[in-house]
């Protein structure tokens, strides 16, 4: 489970659909792994406006990363500063949660992550 996916995933439980607290999911007991993946600057700049920066800040702190700046960096700032872009790439794409759980703050449902794959299958009464 990459951090980029975490920034887009919401709780899948039906009653959480209308709740603001169902996003973001909060990692718990997470074991992190760093991969080596080639930087795809165009893709990052492309999804930049769609990132939920507040959620990313929360998740990054929860995963033990140093605190991110309060404001979403602008496209120009990232294009000019390759180090910033690399840091973002490192956090979003190269960092993987291998084992652990994702917890929804609204309903308390825990999604298990094993070998980097989150289990979003739900029992039918929650769908």
């Amino acid at each position: 489970m990459k951090v980029i996916s975490l920034n887009f995933l919401t709780c899948a439980v039906k009653s959480c659909k209308s709740s603001g607290a169902a996003f973001p999911l909060h990692p718990k007991d997470a074991e992190l792994v760093q991969d080596d993946i080639e930087l795809n600057a165009q893709m990052l700049l492309n999804i930049l406006p769609r990132l939920d920066w507040a959620a990313l800040r929360t998740n990054a702190t929860e995963l033990g990363f140093p605190e991110l700046p309060a404001e979403l960096p602008t496209r120009e700032a990232l294009e000019a500063d390759e180090k910033k872009l690399k840091d973002l790439h490192h956090l979003l794409v190269e960092t993987q949660i291998m084992e652990g759980k994702l917890v929804c703050r609204n309903c308390g449902h825990e999604y298990a992550i094993r070998e980097g794959i989150a289990n979003f299958l739900l029992p039918s009464h929650l769908v």
Partner: peptide, 8 residues
């Protein structure tokens, strides 16, 4: 390379 999710 992609991220995987077990979901229905």
């Amino acid at each position: 390379q992609g991220d995987l999710l077990l979901a229905d």
